[in-house]
């Protein structure tokens, strides 16, 4: 069984999209109004079939010529690609769910004027600013097929920033002013509001948030790391070797030992590599095996719906 490749355009595309939405809404409504036993059966069935598909696709040897897995004339490899693309679309919806969640939580905080409500106002201001200026800047790129020609040198429709009619062409052809969508290629970074918000505000704030970790680490260093046992002493010595061996200071401290001499193994960076490669590596491998076995057991429990979750407990 081969799936035909569908390339829909224009009204056909919109009819197909509406039809798909209608079918999805119908299925959701059926599941929503069904009783718990039916819901459970649907969830268990879907989980099992999805798991079975990938189980078969992974374990059945592929056809030697096409390298595709075919069972009873059903091409599992091609179906897997379709499921992969569908999963991308479904994953896209989770962004909407995340936005709904944030708006719901922060909206409630502002409505009830709970402590810290001003932070929720900041969230809405930042969210709206990013959304408005990102969409305003890019929507012509999404919907105007001529837009790539406007910004590509050499094309007849190219809007030349050095041309005498630049300003009037921008006003006539572009859907956003230059301060919203800066198309001048020489401007790096682009001089528009979105770039200011992304490069100037978001990126620096994100980096600042992460760098605050350094201060927590130094604070924890003298409070938490106490050598009360021999094992803790071994751990501390190892940590000191790795911490110093991972930075040039470690090399500086033992730089007096010749790198090609008999004692080169005593240089801090060499000891560090020994610790990481010969001591850490087997331990990580052992942990990996443990995690792998645990993951396999967990996967089986989820596939066969043996895992107890809040929904199943509630249903039973």
């Amino acid at each position: 069984m081969q799936f035909p490749s569908l390339q829909l355009a224009g009204s056909e595309f919109w009819i197909a999209a509406l039809l798909a939405l209608g079918v999805a809404a119908g299925i959701l409504a059926l599941v929503h109004f069904a009783n718990n036993q039916v819901k459970r059966a649907v969830i268990v069935g879907c989980a099992f079939l999805a798991g079975l598909f990938y189980f078969l696709e992974f374990f059945i040897p592929p056809d030697l010529k096409s390298e595709e897995v075919i069972v009873l004339r059903w091409n599992l490899t091609q179906t897997g690609s379709i499921i992969g693309n569908a999963a991308q679309v479904i994953a896209g919806f989770t962004f909407l769910l995340g936005i709904y969640n944030l708006v719901h939580i922060h909206g409630n905080i502002i409505r009830r004027l709970r402590g810290g409500w001003i932070n929720s106002v900041a969230f809405f201001a930042a969210f709206l600013a990013m959304v408005v200026f990102a969409f305003w800047r890019d929507w012509q790129n999404w919907f105007d097929p001529l837009y790539p020609n406007y910004i590509t040198p050499g094309k007849p429709e190219f809007i030349d920033p050095k041309g005498a009619t630049f300003a009037s062409q921008v006003a006539d052809k572009l859907w956003a002013p230059l301060w919203v969508n800066d198309i001048v290629k020489d401007h790096k970074p682009r001089q528009d509001v979105y770039t200011l918000l992304f490069e100037g505000v978001y990126r620096n704030m994100d980096a600042t948030m992460f760098s605050i970790l350094a201060f927590y680490i130094v604070s924890a260093a003298y409070r938490a790391f106490r050598i009360r046992t021999r094992e803790a002493a071994v751990l501390m010595i190892t940590a000191v070797i790795v911490m110093l061996g991972q930075v040039p200071l470690g090399q500086f401290l033992t730089n007096w030992i010749p790198a090609d001499g008999f004692f080169h193994g005593l240089r801090l960076e060499e000891i560090n590599q020994f610790v990481l490669g010969q001591i850490n590596s087997p331990v990580q491998r052992a942990i990996g095996f443990g995690i792998g076995l645990g993951g396999l057991a967990m996967a089986l429990r989820i596939w066969l719906s043996l895992e107890r979750g809040s929904y199943f407990e509630e249903g039973s």
Partner: peptide
């Protein structure tokens, strides 16, 4: 490097 050294010194200080 000096940040790492500072952390090592703090660990020693705490002990």
């Amino acid at each position: 490097s000096f940040a790492h050294l500072y952390i090592v010194l703090l660990i020693l200080l705490g002990n």
